[in-house]
Write a protein that binds this DNA or RNA. Structure first.
Length: 289
DNA sequence: CAGTGGCCCTGTCTGC
DNA sequence: TGCAGACAGGGCCACT
């Protein structure tokens, strides 16, 4: 369940291990992860083989690798995607989907960049001319850790919307990189209920919430960064971050770390929301329900 | 146009 | 034991 901090950790790993390398050959082992590449798997391989990777960039949860052709490999990890660098010859992972053979450097052993994805919500595509910013994701807002993130615009966008603040946090066109876990954690820290309407929030509430989004992401990044030395991306729930630092997400029935009240779980958009019913009181009833 | 909710996908876990 | 169903969930898209 990679969210922004985990994706950033992956980006750093790609930056140090893949940037500057030449892709010798590409093998697509399952069509679904390249479904967004409409021209098909063979075209995907043809456009990436022989190219040099010039960088590793990220916006929100999207990653892209600018190539020397001016195109970019655009990637989304979905909820179970991994990018692994493995020695060529290492046994294939059970859910290996795409293999990029990297040209050996200085006569060293060859290795591979592997896209592994169990549930295949994620995927790869080649973005034509997308080296700077793939047009496919140009509509996505900057994330809260981006130096160019516009706080005033964020506050204005939130206060313009008649949806609950949690849904707004998850809307990639308002702010990117926030998923279900960090949304619940930030709302708990800011003591706001996710159903509070954007239009009814005060500027100070929104700014406090934004600060908490950044705080929880920064904490996760600090912890995630340390367990990543060998470019080993563990996205199967054991980042070490989950058990130690979560106050709300997944804590149903456990005492709130602030007031001791049992954390409540409710269904939300085909998933779950967790919150403290005392620290994060529901907004006043919104007519029939 | 803004807002809402369904769907995609597979592995794991729970309950009958 | 075996099977059905719930659950995990980001982002897209159809619909109101």
């Amino acid at each position: 369940m990679p969210e922004l901090p985990e994706v950033e950790v992956v980006r750093r790993g790609l930056e140090s291990h893949v940037v500057g390398r030449t892709i010798d050959s590409v093998q697509v082992l399952h069509p679904r992860p390249v479904r967004r590449h409409l021209a098909g798997a063979e075209d995907f391989a043809a456009l990436t083989a022989g190219r040099v990777v010039l960088g590793a960039a990220r916006r929100g949860k999207y990653l892209w690798l600018p190539l020397d052709s001016g195109d970019a490999v655009l990637a989304h990890l979905g909820m179970s995607g991994q990018m692994l660098v493995q020695p060529s010859g290492a046994p294939d992972e059970r859910h290996l989907r795409v293999r990029f053979a990297l040209r050996p450097v200085d006569g060293g052993a060859g290795d591979e960049l592997r896209f592994v994805d169990q549930r295949m919500f994620g995927g790869l595509s080649v973005s034509p001319g997308g080296a700077d910013l793939p047009p496919e994701i140009a509509h996505i807002a900057r994330d809260p850790m981006d130096p160019l993130f516009d706080e005033d615009a964020f506050v204005a966008a939130v206060r313009r919307r008649g949806s609950g603040i949690k849904r707004i946090l998850l809307d990639q066109t308002v702010v990117s990189g926030v998923g279900n876990i960090y949304a619940d954690e930030a709302l708990w820290r800011a003591q706001l209920h996710g159903d509070r309407l954007g239009t009814k929030l005060r500027r100070t509430d929104v700014l406090r919430l934004l600060a908490e989004v950044r705080a929880v992401m920064t904490a996760a990044l600090d912890e995630g960064g340390t367990s990543f030395d060998a470019l080993y991306v563990n996205v199967n729930g054991e980042s070490g971050y989950f058990d130690r630092s979560l106050h709300a997400y997944g804590q149903e029935g456990r005492a709130c770390d602030r007031c001791g009240t049992a954390i409540v779980r409710v269904s939300f958009m085909n998933r779950s929301s967790y919150f403290c019913p005392v620290c994060q009181p529901r907004p006043r009833a919104r007519r029939a329900a």
